[in-house]
């Protein structure tokens, strides 16, 4: 494209710049008379979208057992590395977290942990009021994170589908599981 030169063009550019700036000024100034989009929190609670990502909780499955199986995927997905946990196992073979710690002073509420969680255990809630006077109090342990209900996906139970034998659910008793193979059978 041929570059335009000459005084006329120069004046045009100057005018264009000034014109656009002045329009901006006028438009901004016109906002003096518009209503504020923000609300006066805390007197008035703002609207929180259903997928709002706030304080993280650990949920329980429909039978009331902890959903978290301490697989560590949330921790590895976490971009700020603010989740740490240690696996432990009870006599029935159920995995759970010995400790589960979230350092909320580092958490950015990105929800990657929730996305990574294969058991729907870790979920982000609507609560964002996490202020503390002591930074140390921002470190949440498992007892602070665990809630009594299932949260989202209320019917999901990981061990129902895992094929692993845990208390009350023997091999083959889960959903879509066949009876355990009988080695002594001679049938074809």
């Amino acid at each position: 494209m041929k570059q335009k030169t000459g005084l006329g063009h120069y004046i045009y550019i100057v005018w264009d710049y000034f014109y656009s700036n002045i329009v901006t000024l006028v438009k901004v100034a016109s906002h003096t008379f518009t209503k504020a989009d923000t609300v006066e929190y805390p007197e008035q609670m703002p609207y929180l979208a259903p997928r709002f990502r706030g304080r993280i909780v650990l949920t329980r499955d429909p039978t009331g057992e902890e959903r978290c199986v301490a697989c560590n995927l949330c921790a590895s997905a976490c971009p700020t590395d603010c989740i740490s946990l240690q696996k432990t196992e009870d006599e029935s073979g159920r995995w759970s977290a010995e400790y589960f710690r979230i350092n909320f002073s580092r958490c950015v509420f990105c929800g990657m942990c929730e996305e990574a969680c294969p058991t729907y255990a870790i979920q982000l809630t609507q609560d964002f009021e996490l202020a503390e006077y002591e930074r140390q109090n921002m470190v949440y342990e498992k007892q602070h994170l665990l809630i009594d209900g299932p949260g989202k996906h209320p019917d999901y139970s990981f061990y129902e589908l895992s094929g692993k034998a845990v208390s009350g659910r023997a091999k083959g008793a889960g959903t879509q599981e066949a009876e355990p193979v009988n080695l002594k059978s001679l049938l074809p």
Partner: peptide, 16 residues
Amino acid sequence: HRASGRTSLYADENVS
């Protein structure tokens, strides 16, 4: 390269 928990492993002792 994907080690996790750097800001949380010892946060129970000291958040810094």
